[in-house]
Design a protein around this nucleic acid. Structure first.
Lengths: 203, 203
DNA sequence: TTAAATATATATCGATCGATACATAAATGC
DNA sequence: GCATTTATGTATCGATCGATATATATTTAA
């Protein structure tokens, strides 16, 4: 539906692929630590191409944050939303988080928001609102699944969905933090079952 | 005992005070975002004085990390170690953490390690080992209090001290994260009692 | 009083920063 | 065809980066 030919010389690179490369560069070096040279080299494009496509360094950064929040960080959430059994869903979520936390490429371990974006929350305009939205969106999305289980009668009617959703998100951030600090998958999984219990316990 | 007069012109500034100012600057702007101009202005000294006293920018950064780990971040831990009742100790720890997370000066909210240092873990040599040590030291210190309570008979003999210590530290990091993301003290305290209960629950 | 030692202030270094001017290449519209 | 539009590659801008050379000020040792 949207394949109307545009005028002018066509792009020779894929915007999303370039954004992913930029994200990994920011992730490893930080906003100020990642130079335009670093970024354009990783993206495989020239400086002027970057500016034409994304605006400037700050806008590029904000777009990588949007990409992360909308796409990259969602896999564990999807697992949580699709696994039928709620206990298994919680455990599957945390397992996916742990796997994600330790298995990204060099220098980009952990959570992009928690280990990169948050460092510039007051320095780079636009970061704060995106971070706040990402946290609330995830909290809400996780709570929605708990609410669904309450309707089904699989969780008690007084189950505090939003509080447990926040707790679950906090567990995610904790694993991400230790993952970036080079903790092993095995060590992170040690206390997994108790944490699952803590999340779905009703009182 | 250590007031032997040194030769040469004496320092006109206090090293620790200058380090604290440098830490706040790094905290707000990040390692690469904080320029020597920013740093020396905040520290109230000239460039050459900074280099003479601390080496270079990287060494200054590492020294601020040491200062944070050894001094600045310890207040909630001390509360945890000194409050006689273990349940109150856990709650007091988390309350102190929440207070700390939201009440630092502009741009320096949250945990210095989690919102600044960790961003440069692979970029700045020496950060990774300090971060790893700080996490392990805190985990161990928290676990020691649980072990003490086990000896006293206030906690069951099979209480998993190190796992609960890690959980407690993770709760700390979570509050710090949301504190930096501008969450209010009241909101952070909402689910406090449940978290305390789960930290000291024995099964 | 002089020499040695350490800290300070000013001025400035080459390198790199983010960003852009310009000419050229490759597509569409007519 | 030719004009228009958009993207690319090269070369480079002024500003700022981290770091230092130099001269001066202030202390102790003798």
């Amino acid at each position: 539906m949207n394949d109307i030919k545009k005028m002018g010389r066509p792009r020779t690179f894929d915007e999303k692929q370039a954004l992913l490369k930029a994200m990994n560069t920011f992730w490893a070096k930080g906003y100020d630590g990642a130079s335009l040279k670093d970024l354009t080299k990783a993206m495989g494009i020239s400086g002027p191409s970057m500016y034409a496509a994304f605006g400037d360094k700050r806008e590029l950064y904000l777009k990588t944050i949007d990409l992360y929040a909308d796409v990259d960080a969602c896999e564990p959430v999807v697992i949580f939303e699709t696994e039928p059994d709620i206990a298994k869903a919680v455990k599957g979520f945390l397992q996916a988080v742990i796997h994600y936390a330790v298995s990204r490429e060099n220098g980009a371990q952990g959570c992009y928001l928690a280990s990169c974006a948050i460092a510039n929350i007051d320095e780079v305009e636009g970061v704060a609102e995106r971070l706040d939205k990402a946290i609330h969106d995830t909290d809400t999305r996780l709570a929605a699944r708990f609410d669904l289980e309450k309707q089904k009668g699989n969780l008690p009617s007084d189950f505090p969905s939003i509080n447990r959703a926040r707790l679950m998100y906090d567990m995610r951030q904790s694993y991400m933090f230790r993952g970036r600090a080079k903790w092993s998958k095995a060590t992170l999984e040690e206390d997994l079952d108790y944490r699952v219990k803590m999340i779905i316990s009703s009182s």
